Amino acid sequence: MSDVNRKEVRVAVASKDRLQINEHFGHADAFHVYQVGPAGVVYLEERQVEHYCQGGYGDEDKREVILRALADCSALFVARVGDGPRERLERAGIQAVDDYPYAQVETALQSWYQESGRA
């Protein structure tokens, strides 16, 4: 497929340092948003949220705020995500990706983009 036909997608990453995918969904206070496409990976912004996990259980109101904050993203990359949040993300049209825990962000995003068939 030529580069002209490839689609750019917006994704979010749970990361403490913007270097690695090293944050659990429920513990993230911010998500880093990237544009991924044929030209590579471009950092766009940080989106602040209140973390979802409240000492062993999840706060549903906070999860809904997180879903709204990520509504324009196709995927969310996390080190780990529970089944409940994963299902809710999927219903919102956001793919929960935990296949790259502790991987370098840009490398993981490029690999996912190539493997997902979007490239």
Rank of each mutant, 00 (worst) to 15 (best):
G40A: 01
R118E: 07
V36E: 01
I21G: 01
Q104Y: 10
N22K: 04
E8M: 08
R118L: 15
V33M: 03
G82T: 02
E64A: 12
E106N: 15
Y43P: 12
A96S: 08
E106M: 09
V41E: 08
E46L: 01
K7C: 07
Y100S: 04
E46R: 14
S15W: 03
E50K: 05
V11T: 05
T107E: 15
H27V: 00
Q48Y: 11
G56A: 06
R10K: 14
R68F: 06
F77R: 01
E106K: 13
D59S: 14
L44D: 06
E8N: 15
A39D: 13
D98N: 07
A96P: 14
V42C: 06
N5H: 11
S74K: 15
Y43F: 15
G37A: 02
D72Y: 08
A103C: 09
N5D: 11
G37H: 06
W112F: 14
R18S: 14
W112P: 03
S116Q: 04
G40Y: 06
V9W: 07
V97W: 05
V11R: 04
S2T: 09
E8V: 07
E64C: 00
S2Q: 04
F77Q: 01
G93C: 09
D59N: 15
S74D: 10
R86F: 12
L44A: 03
G37T: 01
R88Y: 10
I94T: 05
G58P: 00
E90I: 01
L109Q: 03
H27Q: 12
N5W: 12
G58N: 09
D83I: 06
P85R: 13
E23I: 01
P38R: 07
R86M: 12
Q20V: 02
D61H: 08
